[in-house]
Design a protein around this nucleic acid. Structure first.
Length: 601
RNA sequence: GCCGGCGUAGCUCAGUUGGCAGAGCAUUCGCCUUGUAAGCGAAGGGUCAUGGGUUCAAGUCCCAUCGCCGGCUCCA
């Protein structure tokens, strides 16, 4: 497959960024320009502007961009010396900084270390605008389609120079650009669809959760229907884990600060923890993670190799201080529940246990109809010093992960700098129906915490050994996972998960008593049922459809007489009237199979 | 935390150059008794996010705070 960097779209978007910069400079000649790269689906350019942008500015910029494109200007590449470049951009301080970084062969335009040393400076010029740029670009603006781009689809946004929050805040204008207007329309439609499916909107409409200013931002309140969904997921995983030899534990929400000093969490992550609470002169913290607690349970007894592997699980709620601006619905919150487990294993067991965890995660995803995911091996960044533990041990752990993947035939890719601070990990990245990627389940191999906590077990040789720890969470956080599920399914959950599975729609209140009896019968069968009593049948259908309830049972005198129900599915399919017994069997089958369809194949 | 936008009834929103705070849905009550996408009528519901300021007069103008949205940063 062609790399994005080599594609025509990439050149189009890169060139669009230059055209936009030219347009902005026409309006604000005093503006300072930073960088303007292509990105997924589009491009941006960062500016230091004399005032905030308005919608009218964006219209004006768009108009000017179209005019520039219509001018059929060539993009002309030129190799320049550092001195030449500095003279050319004398009144553009950001460019001067870039030139100095590039000329010294140290930093690229993003402020990252340069890999290749071919520190040749080039510029590209179209019409009156010449920009420091390594390209590539289209040959001429006539290759840009003036009807296939938009800069008004997104609000202008703030962005720090070189992405560092200590630097100056610039104004970033985003654009999207395509080869044809049809592709643009398709992209914009995808954005609209994502907005329609937004879990915050759908979750409120379905009555799953709410937020309260009095409780606090980033602290979701689960309403009954959301709690049912959540509990159903939780029970599914709980049962699955019990079956696989996990043991449940429960631990408190606060602990002494010394616990996190020992684990190493406190010094490394004090920024994202809440301030300690003084209790009778001792400092306690809201727990930011569950592992140190589980370690204390491990250490409560003398462990033999015969006890291992020991797999402790807990749906443990943790609290982390997230900056207010980064909170988003359920996907980024300040208190959330991790479907956590820690496996304590001997070196001999590591591989097998790791494989077992990966199999569990694969099974869980498959049960939820989530099939499109890939695995990432997160390795330490050799240049960083944020990791604890001996590099040699890291290598052993990383190799164990890779060997497990190979042995399972798992498709994976490696990425440096994606490890946890105490060990390498394997992350599962899920792609939803809208082709967006989310990092979900994670498995981490850890030699560090067992050492820090001086954990041990007695081996067959009667000597003491240190266990290895595997941290893992298939969902990651229940909150975030449910947010993703809502958007993936657009609130139309598979039957086994749906908070209300069956809506009974009485044709009139003449069958009120019979409808109640039907509801009771279905509840006794274990189904979640709601009777819709308001208004006429049409209105009941509207309401039940709005709640995305899988089965709508139209129930009237005819059905009462025949012992049937008329089943209408969530997708508006109308099944012929069927005996109640038959409906119950069908629904049981779909639930038992965790089917994605409402009618068994 | 930073940049920008936005806060009017439970929800979605209207509210003119500053001049009596509104609609639909939802809720409650009454009528209708219904067979596959909204039956009819009435009533209740507001410190216009909060606090200050300007003004004869503020939902409307100014300032601060809180919250929400889009980004940046961050995400054990």
């Amino acid at each position: 497959m062609e790399r994005y960097e080599d594609s025509k779209l990439y050149r189009i978007r890169h060139s669009m960024a230059h055209v936009m910069a030219q347009a902005v400079l026409e309006i604000f000649p005093q503006a300072q320009i930073a960088i303007g790269p292509p990105i997924e689906d589009g491009f941006y350019y960062d500016f230091l502007l004399p005032r905030p942008l308005t919608n009218d500015d964006l219209k004006d910029i768009t108009k000017r961009m179209k005019r520039i494109i219509g001018g059929n200007h060539d993009f002309v590449r030129r190799v320049v010396s550092a001195d030449e470049a500095k003279a050319m951009f004398a009144n553009q301080p950001f460019k001067i900084e870039l030139i100095e970084g590039l000329a010294a062969g140290k930093l690229d335009e993003y402020g990252n270390k340069i890999q290749d040393e071919s520190n040749v400076l080039t510029t590209y010029k179209q019409a009156t605008f010449e920009d420091l740029c390594r390209g590539p670009h289209v040959a001429n603006t006539r290759e840009l389609n003036p009807e296939a781009f938009s800069i008004s689809f997104k609000e202008p946004a703030g962005a720090y120079w070189r992405g560092d929050e200590n630097n100056q805040m610039l104004t970033r204008i985003y654009g999207t650009a395509w080869e044809t207007p049809e592709q643009l329309a398709e992209y914009l439609e995808r954005l609209e669809e994502a907005k329609r499916r937004d879990h915050r909107k759908v979750g409120m409409e379905l009555g799953l959760f709410t937020f309260s200013e009095l409780v606090g931002k980033g602290l979701p309140l689960w309403k009954p229907k959301g709690a049912i969904l959540r509990d159903t997921l939780q029970r599914f995983l709980y049962d699955e884990q019990i079956w696989r030899g996990y043991l449940p534990v429960v631990t408190p929400h606060i602990a002494k600060i010394e616990l996190y000093m020992t684990s190493g969490h406190y010094p490394y992550y004090s920024d994202s923890q809440y301030d300690p609470i003084d209790v009778d002169g001792e400092m306690f913290m809201l727990k930011p993670m569950n592992c140190p607690h589980h370690i204390q349970i491990y250490k409560s007894e003398m462990r033999s190799y015969r006890d291992l592997p020991l797999r402790l699980m807990e749906f443990g709620t943790v609290y982390r201080y997230e900056q207010s601006g980064e909170l988003t619905g359920l996907t980024r919150v300040r208190g959330f529940t991790v479907d956590d487990a820690h496996l304590f294993v001997t070196p001999d067991q590591l591989l097998e246990e790791f494989i077992g965890v990966v199999k569990l995660i694969q099974y869980v995803f498959k049960s939820l109809g989530m099939t499109d995911f890939r695995a990432r091996v997160g390795m330490r960044d050799p240049a960083s010093d944020k990791y604890i533990g001996d590099p040699a041990i890291w290598e052993v752990a990383t190799n164990a992960i890779i060997e497990a993947c190979d042995r399972m035939g798992l498709d994976y890719f490696k990425e440096e700098g994606e490890a946890a601070f105490y060990g390498p990990k394997l992350d599962f990245i899920f792609r939803d129906v809208l082709k967006r990627e989310w990092q979900l389940g994670t498995v981490q191999v850890d030699y560090s915490l067992p050492a820090r906590f001086e954990m041990e077990y007695v081996g067959a040789d009667n000597a003491k050994h240190q266990p290895i720890m595997i941290h893992r969470a298939p969902f990651g956080s229940l909150e975030r996972f449910i947010g993703i599920l809502i958007e993936h399914f657009n609130g139309e959950f598979p039957l086994w998960l749906a908070p209300v599975q069956v809506a009974i729609l009485p044709v009139s209140n003449k069958v009120e008593a019979e409808s109640q009896a039907l509801a009771e019968r279905l509840k006794n069968e274990g189904f979640r049922v709601e009777i819709f009593e308001r208004g006429q049948l049409g209105k009941k259908i509207v309401e039940a459809r709005g709640q995305k309830i899988p089965y709508l049972l139209v129930y009237g005198p005819r059905d009462v007489e025949n012992g049937t129900v008329s089943v209408r599915l969530r997708d508006d399919t109308e099944l012929p009237a069927m005996p109640i017994e038959q409906f119950i069997n069908m629904a049981h089958q779909v639930v038992d199979e965790k089917g994605m369809e409402l009618v068994p194949a």
